[in-house]
C-alpha cells in the first residue's frame, strides 16, 4: 500500500473557503507526520479549481478537485455521491471535516456508503503512538461526559471537528503540491433537491465567532431591560454582546449571540461573563479566550473556576463600574 493519506474537506460556501478548513489542514499535517503519510485537501464546487493552491500554502501535499455545475452549492446527495466515489477509489486512512452544518450533514451521508466509523464534533484528535489508530475525543450527553472513540478496522477513520479550537497554521506561499482533477458521475436530473433561494440573516454584522472582545450575560441578567448593562460595557470596549442559552430561550437575544455547545465557539482576546453559572455547555464555547473575567454573585458558580479574574458580587454594581472606569480612561 502507498503511504497513508489524511484527507481534509476544504469547506466552501459560495466560493469562499471557510477558515476552519485551514484549522483542519494544520491538524491533518500533524497527524500525517505522525503516521509518516501525506495530507490531501478535498475541494468540491464550481469554478473553484483556482483556489486549490491555498491548500498547499496551509500544508496540503495534494488537492483533489471536483469542479462541476451540479456542485455549485452544497447538496447532501450531490456532494456525498461525488466525494464517497473518490474516497472509494483512493482509500484515505483518515478523513476529517468541520463540525459545521455542512460538515456534520456530509460526514453522516458519506460514512454510510463507505461503511466508515465516524465520530461527531471532536475536540481532540491524536494518533496513538503504539497502535497508530486515531483517538477521537468528543463531548456527549450535552457536554456532561467526554468520550474517546477509536476505530479498529473500518477505513477511513472519519471525524467532524469543532471549529475554532485549533490554530490556523502559518500561510506559506512557497509551498506547492499536486492538483488532481476528479469527476462526479451525477447529472443535474439525478439530483433530488434544488435551492430556491438563500436568505442571509439580517444583522449579519453580529459575527461573534470573529469578535476580539465578548461581553456575555446569562440567567443572572433577569430580563431584557437589564441587558443594557452588558451592552454598555460591550460598547465601551468596542466588543460584541454574547450570552448563554437561557437568554436565547427567553427570547432576550437571538441565536447569533449564543456562546456554547448549541451556539457559537469563540476565541476572543477578552471575555467578560456576568450572571452566567458556567454550565459545561457554555464553557466549551468560550474556554479558548485569552483573558477571562467572570462576575457572579454565587461564589460556587462554575464559570469562576475557568476565570483569570473572578469577582463575587452583584453584576449590576460591578459591570457599570467597569464601564465607567473604561470611559474615564478612554476620555482621558
Amino acid at each position: 500500500m502507498s503511504q497513508p493519506a489524511v484527507w481534509i474537506l476544504i469547506e466552501q460556501n459560495d466560493g469562499v473557503i471557510a477558515d476552519v478548513s485551514w484549522e483542519l489542514m494544520g491538524k491533518g499535517r500533524e497527524l500525517a507526520d505522525d503516521l509518516g503519510g501525506e495530507v490531501a485537501g478535498i475541494l468540491v464546487g464550481h469554478n473553484i479549481k483556482d483556489q486549490a493552491k491555498e491548500a498547499f500554502y496551509y500544508g496540503a501535499d495534494k488537492v483533489y478537485v471536483i469542479d462541476d455545475p451540479t456542485l455549485e452549492y452544497y447538496r447532501t446527495q450531490a456532494y456525498a455521491h461525488a466525494i464517497s466515489d473518490i474516497a472509494k477509489k483512493h482509500k484515505p486512512e483518515i478523513f476529517l471535516m468541520a463540525a459545521t452544518s455542512l460538515g456534520r450533514d456530509l460526514s453522516g451521508a458519506i460514512a454510510t456508503p463507505l461503511g466508515a466509523g465516524l465520530t461527531a464534533d471532536c475536540t481532540v484528535l491524536e494518533i496513538d503512538p503504539e497502535t497508530k489508530l486515531l483517538h477521537q475525543t468528543r463531548p456527549a450527553f450535552g457536554g456532561n461526559i467526554m468520550a474517546t472513540i477509536y476505530c479498529q478496522i473500518a477505513r477511513p477513520q472519519m471525524a467532524s471537528v469543532r471549529p475554532r479550537l485549533l490554530p490556523i497554521p502559518e500561510r506559506d506561499e512557497k509551498r506547492t503540491g499536486t492538483v488532481i482533477e476528479e469527476k462526479t458521475s451525477l447529472q443535474e436530473t439525478d439530483i433530488k433537491t434544488r435551492r430556491v433561494e438563500f436568505i442571509p440573516d439580517e444583522g449579519a454584522t453580529v459575527n461573534i465567532e470573529d469578535a476580539e472582545c465578548v461581553v456575555a450575560g446569562g440567567r443572572g441578567i433577569g430580563n431584557a431591560d437589564n441587558l443594557k448593562v452588558i451592552e454598555e460595557l460591550a460598547n465601551a470596549l468596542g466588543g460584541t454582546v454574547g450570552c448563554s442559552r437561557p437568554l436565547v430561550d427567553a427570547g432576550i437575544l437571538p441565536h447569533a449571540h449564543q456562546v456554547g455547545m448549541s451556539g457559537h465557539t469563540i476565541r476572543p482576546k477578552l471575555y467578560i461573563g456576568a450572571g452566567i453559572s458556567g454550565a459545561i455547555h457554555h464553557v466549551v464555547g468560550m474556554e479558548g479566550a485569552d483573558l477571562t473575567i467572570v462576575i457572579n454573585k454565587d461564589p460556587d458558580a462554575a464559570l469562576l473556576r475557568v476565570a483569570d479574574y473572578g469577582v463575587v458580587g452583584n453584576l449590576f454594581d460591578i459591570v457599570p463600574a467597569i464601564t465607567k472606569e473604561i470611559k474615564a480612561r478612554k476620555g482621558a
Binding site: 466509523g117 461526559i145 467526554m146 468520550a147 474517546t148 479498529q152 475557568v306
Partner: peptide
C-alpha cells in the same frame, strides 16, 4: 466500526 476507548468527566 467505532469503539469507545474511555469515558471521563470534562476536564477542568
Amino acid at each position: 466500526p467505532t469503539q469507545v476507548k474511555k469515558i471521563f468527566p470534562p476536564p477542568q
